[in-house]
């Protein structure tokens, strides 16, 4: 009997979780449409969005640039180590550039963005809710989705591709420094092989599209978790954690899906 009870309660918990999850997805979708619908203000009064680009984009600049440089340098070292075994160390440029532009640039910069800017967005909106600032705004006949959420959303969506591009560029420079300046791979071969193998539309544009999609996902999760947070200290801290966890999982899952579509049948 006890086993049956445990089983029933287990099933009930599972059912409850599923229903809650589905409900939350529906709620998030409605929230997304509301953000899009009330985006007029974010563009009409673009200085609101510019301000948020400062807080999400500019303040993430240092971490993105430094991480990009180091990731590129590590790629240079590891790539050289592997490639020279097959006597093709000139292909180092290709390896560094393709891994960065296709995968590491968009993915790592999105992960960093989620933990640097996404968590800050969630905490800020959550605290505004906790201290009744959002309610106060509503009572002052100002829609908080239009005034607070939409500018942050668009700022994140616009910042993300730029940050990813900077990450990739810094990474290529890092790979160049280690590969060419430190190890001594031929400079001409490094750049020319890179240029002949990296396709602008196929690799670079697809990388930008990826980072754009990640930007939408991360900022949407961030503003949603903030807006949906329980108006308590624990609620906000829980929401901040959820932002980082959910965003990271979303980035990796979306990356798989996008890669499967983009590079299908490409050698």
């Amino acid at each position: 009997m006890a086993v049956l009870d445990t089983l029933t309660s287990g099933l009930r918990t599972l059912g409850h979780k599923v229903i809650e999850g589905v409900w939350r997805i529906g709620f998030a979708a409605r929230f997304f449409f509301a953000v899009l619908m009330y985006s007029g203000t974010a563009f009409r009064r673009f200085n609101l969005t510019i301000r948020e680009i400062y807080f999400t984009g500019v303040l993430s600049l240092i971490i993105i640039l430094i991480s990009g440089l180091f990731v590129g340098m590590v790629l240079g070292l590891q790539g050289y180590d592997t490639l020279q075994r097959y006597g093709s160390s000139e292909a180092l440029g290709v390896l560094v550039a393709l891994s960065l532009v296709r995968e590491l640039g968009p993915v790592i910069s999105a992960l960093l963005f989620a933990s640097r800017a996404g968590s800050a967005i969630t905490a800020e909106i959550g605290l505004m809710k906790t201290t009744e600032q959002l309610s106060a705004m509503e009572m002052m006949a100002v829609n908080p989705i239009a005034r607070v959420v939409a500018p942050r959303f668009w700022a994140g969506v616009m910042s993300m591709p730029l940050l990813a591009a900077m990450f990739s560029a810094m990474g290529v420079i890092g790979g160049y420094l280690v590969g060419v300046k430190l190890i001594g791979v031929d400079e001409g071969a490094f750049w020319s092989q890179m240029q002949s193998s990296v396709d602008v539309r196929l690799d670079i544009v697809n990388g930008v599209i990826k980072s754009f999609v990640f930007g939408i996902a991360v900022t949407l999760i961030s503003v949603f978790e903030g807006y949906d947070a329980d108006p308590t200290a624990e609620g906000v801290s829980g929401a901040t954690t959820r932002t980082v966890v959910t965003s990271s999982l979303a980035i990796l899952a979306l990356d798989f899906i996008l890669t499967a579509f983009m590079f299908r049948g490409v050698g």
């Binding site: 400062y54 600049l61 532009v101 730029l162 750049w191 240029q195 670079i204 930008v208």
Partner: peptide, 24 residues
């Protein structure tokens, strides 16, 4: 405004670098 200007310029410069120097 100044910082966001710098940020956007850097981002576009990175894209141009990728397109011209890294890509073909």
């Amino acid at each position: 405004d100044l910082w966001v200007g710098i940020f956007v310029t850097l981002g576009i410069a990175a894209l141009v670098f990728l397109a011209l120097k890294v890509g073909n």
